[in-house]
Design a protein around this nucleic acid. Structure first.
Lengths: 360, 360
DNA sequence: CTGAAAGCGCTTACAG
DNA sequence: CTGAAAGCGCTTACAG
């Protein structure tokens, strides 16, 4: 590496170096450096010139660490996910969120810190040795299925500004979130089924469901009620922990008069695939013998069917989460806030009027 | 929002606050905070416990600005791209790099700062108001086609640790990079063409090419030489600034006896598409009348052909860049280093032995 | 118009 | 085992 200007050290020049060279005080150097049109320094032109010469000669750069030490915010937002985002099987699911977050963060003039080291070994956690790692940033967007509620409570307790993507609740605290409006989306789907003529509509859900599942179940009941069937018409089947629908399941339901299924997505989105397999095994045709709708988009499923479903506005959820976070930051002493975003109904090809199979 | 612990202020707690609370000195707090398994603090368990309690109670975070002012590392690596990464047409190109970078960063126990605000308005730049924005991090991985050489020089001049993905040079300074081995990949491709019987192989390159183009051209000549044709056999065509191959171009080349083309990727990867279109227009069949190989993977092309080409190990380039960067960080007094990675030859379907078209 | 001084939050020898 | 002190590079009142 050529060392053009002699005397240049590995250590980058500081304002003190400039001051020495220009024969002024360090404070004066700072004046010159920080001069802006709207906040001009009161300096003689000669002094300014001497300093600027020194800047040029020594190749001076302000040290941002030192500068921000004097300030407060550092225009850094964090993104923390409770699950690893980058393994192949997760990418399709998480990338759209990441995309929206990243775009909005950039547009707002912030930079994004991806907290991925969290998962280097062991489970991903926000608090390591009792230290909130996110605090490096002004605030953070959180994401993930397997939330650690205790960490969320901690975050609320210490007033760290954050927004969750997805509705999350913790006891005794209000969490800010931006979430898909699952209640409305499910309600609309169920109403459509009823309009098509379905009367026995089964809600199939995974073994244990968090807030999103509860919201979808609420939407299901609301759909039944709104379309005049009444909540008594609700039939809910909770899958075993395997989260898989079997051929006997399907047979029993159909014999029981069920003509349509709305399926809550399981952990790994395997419900759709298992229904598809079970139908094939039973010789049942979807949608001729049985209509099936998915309560969400099966981003992780290996399936060839064009499922009737609704899609989450993933990138938009990411963007809105960032916007909300920045609002919180600017409000400074903010109440938690919640935002719901509409899902997009996808007609698909797995829903039809009931009884079509019998007429064949 | 509940205000659990009374007396909590908006101002984030500092080590002084912790010290006060724990009844120790601020220096002792720092000891506890900075303790690691390999560099344990010499402290009584009680002191440590009191400090950690205070940390938890006050929700303490170390201020990264202050920490890095002292020259200590903050386990933050940066990723800066000279072009926006997230617009749709760029995603396929940049995501694989990002993926590799992110994965390796996480594995090494660092967090990643995406410097995307850089492009909020106007061109993306490292230095804003004379401040190196990357300085927040311990070091950075850089990426992009339209490099600002002056910024690169600046970075070198101030000894900021960085690794470029792709070979980049700046006058009078050595840049660390991890790059595809374009010379070898192109040489091998050309050798294969010669082995198939091609004697007049045209190198088509974009109007202006940077280091990668020069490397590929070098590989081209080396391939000719290595396979006995000699560098005199080189025929190079530089495209106009449009970067498009026209039907007349193609006709003229074929009449001139050219049987194979190796095409350097243009800015937007449009070369492949334009060759495809020109061939269709001329009625020439690829590969029967003309063999065409791409010097890289046309990630941004709308094309249906299975091009003969080589693929860049993009995620691996990202990973290796991070590794190299960390090496640089650990070496501390590092010479710039360079790493070349092999590309993968993709046989594809656009290359065949010459003259097949005439035999039809 | 310019400089001396305090202080931002932290780490690190160095004493004790 | 713990603390007093210096200093990282800078900004910002405050004197003069």
């Amino acid at each position: 590496m050529s060392d053009g200007a002699p005397g240049r050290r590995r250590r980058p020049p500081t304002q003190i170096d400039l001051a020495r060279r220009a024969g002024v005080s360090q404070a004066t150097v700072s004046q010159v450096i920080n001069e802006t049109p709207d906040r001009p320094a009161r300096l003689s032109p000669e002094t300014r010139a001497r300093v600027l010469d020194a800047v040029r000669e020594l190749g001076y750069r302000v040290n941002p660490a030192a500068r921000s030490l004097k300030g407060a915010r550092n225009r850094l937002l964090g993104l923390f996910t409770f699950e690893a985002v980058f393994p192949t099987d997760q990418r399709d699911f998480y990338f759209p969120f990441l995309l929206g977050v990243e775009e909005e963060v950039a547009e707002q003039g912030y930079d994004l810190v991806l907290f991925s080291s969290a998962g280097a070994s062991g489970p991903r956690r926000i608090y390591v040795d009792g230290v909130n790692r996110l605090k490096l940033t002004d605030g953070a967007v959180l994401l993930g299925r397997h939330v650690r509620r205790t960490e969320l409570s901690e975050l609320v307790k210490e007033d760290f500004p954050f927004v969750f993507i997805g509705r999350r609740e913790v006891p005794g605290a209000r969490v800010s979130y931006v979430a898909p409006d699952y209640v409305s989306a499910t309600r609309d789907l169920v109403r459509r089924l009823v309009e098509l003529g379905h009367r026995r509509i089964l809600f199939v859900k995974a073994y244990q469901g968090a807030e999103p599942t509860r919201d979808r179940e609420r939407g299901y009941r609301r759909g039944l009620k709104d379309s005049g069937l009444g909540v008594e018409a609700a039939i809910v089947h909770r899958l075993p922990s395997s989260g898989v629908v079997t051929a006997p399941d399907l047979g029993a339901w159909v014999r029981d008069g069920v003509t349509a299924i709305v399926a809550d997505p399981s952990e790994d989105d395997s419900v759709a695939a298992s229904i598809e397999a079970a139908a094939a095994e039973t010789g049942l045709s979807v949608p001729d013998d049985l209509s099936v709708a998915l309560l969400g988009d099966p981003s992780r499923t290996e399936t060839t069917r064009d499922w009737t479903r609704f899609d989450l506005p993933r990138p938009e959820l990411g963007r809105q989460a960032v916007r909300l976070l920045i609002q919180l930051l600017e409000a400074d002493e903010g109440e938690a806030r919640q935002v719901l975003l509409d899902c997009t109904q996808i007609p698909g090809g797995t829903v039809a009027e009931p009884g079509r199979g019998r007429r064949r």
